[in-house]
Write a protein that binds this DNA or RNA. Structure first.
Lengths: 224, 224
DNA sequence: CCCCGGCCTGAGCAAGCGCTTAGCCGCCGT
DNA sequence: ACGGCGGCTAAGCGCTTGCTCAGGCCGGGG
């Protein structure tokens, strides 16, 4: 765990200033955050929050990474917490839509569960910095924002529980405790954001496949 | 009388001061931290760190919960980080010993794995505040302390991996990817600390049993 | 041409942080 | 009886924090 480059100029800690197309997905992720400066602030905040945590990150650090003065942050966001809320809301929506969109309507429960888990896990691995903030920093949200985010999380839970219930009803799965198993499956997927390392030898796709298999085993699905 | 004992100074945030044996296990956990004041500081710090996170917790808050003035903390611990390190080291050792001690030497891999997971998970549920600090705040440790703790974590990983390898070798388990599965099993157990709620309807024992079953499924063990 | 409004900066405020210091209190052995 | 000492506190130092504010730069409409 490295301790981040000390600044070079007055602002700008590390990081070449240019946007450059090095991370195409990452850029798309915040595509509808405008104007450009607001988007740069979001990506800077995500990087900082993921690295050090919300409370250990200063507004000066965020602004510095975005190449601006500390005061510029407050033109685009009311508070530091507001910035976290924006990230959290967008991230949760993204993950939830992914989870739902991966399931093709016609297919059997096992395929739907595997597809959902694969997509969900892949996102948590690929965007593990964003996911880290989304999943582990929500305690820093204010009460109202927190309540709103919890709503999205309940939807995510319901989505997974739904597929498992379908599988149990159709006899494809053998699950003694649906609620508990749903919790475990979600927990397993979410925690990918904590340990996944981009420099490691496992790709997001590989982790997705591995986890889809593990989850099918957990719900007692007999391999074909 | 009006001398309001020194027990009730301006500090002391909430919390009735009495020790009383309300939480017997929790007390045993830090049994060999002496003197008494140092132990009170540890339990106060665990509560605060678990609730708000290390960086959002102030030394004044910790001292207040322990019923002392802020300065008293520094008689027993060099820094706030030192306090975290102590908690982290003791917690990691405890969990590791539990994980190893639960496995009875003679038994077959499935029983050993189930026993290990059950004990490990039960600890994470029962002591979820301690476990939260131990598992999710290690990023706040200084470099040397962090390195030391990582050593303990590697031992934990090796312990689980060992049982799984044994099961694969004996033909009891069917695991395509031992390293990945070990990671997933550990991740699943650890994350219990994040979501477990003492007010919830699941007891630590129930979660331990559920998880032992789930893990056996993950490693492809056929139920008896 | 000027002025307007969006974007940004330099300077800085009040509050709170981790930690230190000087000194007090009461229990110990002698 | 008393000196030493471990355990404690009041006070506060130096610094950083989240955030504010008066003003500057610049491109576009009148």
């Amino acid at each position: 765990m490295v301790f981040v480059a000390r600044a070079e100029g007055p602002w700008r800690a590390g990081r070449a200033g240019r946007g450059m197309g090095a991370e195409p997905k990452r850029t798309e992720e915040w595509a509808d955050v405008t104007p450009d400066a607001a988007r740069r602030l979001v990506t800077a905040a995500v990087a900082a929050f993921a690295e050090r945590g919300y409370h250990a990150t200063t507004t000066r650090d965020i602004a510095g990474r975005a190449g601006m003065s500390p005061a510029a942050l407050y033109i685009h966001y009311r508070t530091k917490e507001d910035l976290l809320y924006r990230i959290s809301a967008i991230g949760h929506r993204l993950a939830l839509d992914l989870l739902r969109g991966a399931q093709r309507p016609g297919s059997d429960p096992a395929t739907r569960l595997a597809d959902a888990v694969r997509a969900f896990v892949r996102w948590h691995a690929e965007h593990h910095t964003t996911a880290r903030v989304v999943q582990y920093e929500l305690g820093a949200l204010g009460e109202e924002h927190y309540a709103e985010i919890v709503g999205l999380r309940r939807e995510t839970d319901a989505a997974i529980r739904g597929v498992i219930e379908d599988g149990v009803a159709s006899g494809d799965f053998a699950v003694p405790d649906v609620t508990g198993t749903t919790l475990a499956v979600l927990s397993l997927c979410i925690d990918v954001a904590r340990w996944f390392n981009a420099e490691g030898k496992r790709t997001p796709d590989e982790v997705g496949d591995l986890y889809a298999d593990l989850v099918l085993r957990m719900v007692g699905h007999r391999a074909p």
